[in-house]
Every structure is written in structure tokens, then in C-alpha cells.
Simulated assay, not measured.
Amino acid sequence: MNKQTLINDIRKHLDGRSISLHRLAQESGVDHGSLWRFVNIEKANLNTDSLFRLWPFLYGEQKTPTVEASPSPLSPATAAKPRKEKNHVE
């Protein structure tokens, strides 16, 4: 996703809900001035916190794709299980 895609998605969200940029800023907890500058001024950017606050309003609970991490060797799922002793017949 690039900046222009995000700006277009913000505008679609505003039009779709018939709300103002100010209202979106209030609902999401993002500074109105920062959001306005991001949408209306070419060189303005949002910080990561603002992006995380806006994401659920624009995309719902959808998350960005992540790479699944392998379980930690210390996690309960991978903890060493007690070995069963084999019955050896001698």
C-alpha cells in the first residue's frame, strides 16, 4: 500500500459514511490537523500511531498480511515431552 492508496481509501470512507475529516479524526483519536495535512498536502505524512488508529475505521478488523512465526522452542506447544521408556526384552 502506498500513500496515495491510503488517501483514496480515506476519501472513500468519508464519502461512504457521509462524514467529515474532522469526524473521522475524532472517532479514531487521530489529530485533526495531522490528518488534514496528510490528505491535503503532498509532502505531509502520518506517524505509525495514527496509521494504527485509522486502520480499523478504514479496513475493519482486517489486518495486514504477516508471516507466521515458528513457535518458540520454549513455548508449551514445543516443550520436550517426557520420553516413554521402551520395554526392552533382553
Rank of each mutant, 00 (worst) to 15 (best):
T64I: 08
H88P: 12
K84W: 08
K12P: 01
L35E: 02
I7C: 04
S72L: 07
E42A: 15
R37Y: 15
A79C: 06
E68H: 09
I10W: 10
N2W: 15
A77V: 14
G33F: 11
N2Y: 10
P71H: 02
I19V: 07
N47A: 06
E90P: 07
G33W: 09
L21H: 02
L24C: 01
R17T: 04
S18M: 11
K43Q: 15
T5L: 14
D9E: 13
N47G: 14
E68V: 13
L46G: 05
N87A: 00
I19G: 01
G29D: 01
V39N: 13
T5H: 09
S75W: 13
I7T: 06
E61D: 12
S18H: 10
T64G: 04
E90Y: 06
L58G: 01
W55S: 13
K43L: 10
D49A: 11
S20Y: 00
N47L: 01
Y59P: 06
Y59R: 05
F38A: 12
H88K: 12
L14Y: 03
P76A: 04
D49T: 11
K86Q: 13
L6K: 06
H13S: 10
H13D: 11
V67M: 11
L46S: 03
N8A: 14
R11Y: 14
W36H: 12
F38T: 10
K81P: 01
Q26F: 07
L21D: 03
M1A: 15
N2A: 12
L58C: 05
L14K: 05
G16F: 15
G33M: 13
I19A: 06
L74R: 14
D49C: 09
T66E: 04
L24K: 01
Q4D: 15
L14T: 02
Q4I: 15
R53M: 11
V39W: 05
A80V: 12
F52Q: 10
E42F: 07
Q4H: 12
D15G: 07
R53V: 08
R23S: 02
T48C: 01
I10Q: 15
S20D: 00
M1W: 10
K12N: 07
G16W: 13
R37Q: 11
L35T: 05
F52R: 11
F52E: 04
P82G: 03
N40G: 14
L46N: 03
P73G: 12
I19N: 04
F57K: 02
L54M: 11
S28M: 05
R11V: 14
Q26E: 13
D9S: 10
K86T: 09
L24V: 00
R11G: 13
R23Y: 03
P82V: 05
N45K: 12
P71F: 04
H13N: 07
N40I: 15
K63F: 01
W55E: 11
L21C: 03
E42P: 10
F57G: 00
T78Y: 06
R83S: 09
S75D: 11
L54Y: 07
P71V: 04
A44H: 12
F57S: 04
P56Y: 01
E68L: 12
N87Y: 00
K3Q: 00
V89F: 02
G33L: 10
K86M: 13
H22W: 00
K84D: 12
S20W: 00
L51K: 08
T66F: 01
S18P: 03
L54A: 08
A80M: 15
S34N: 03
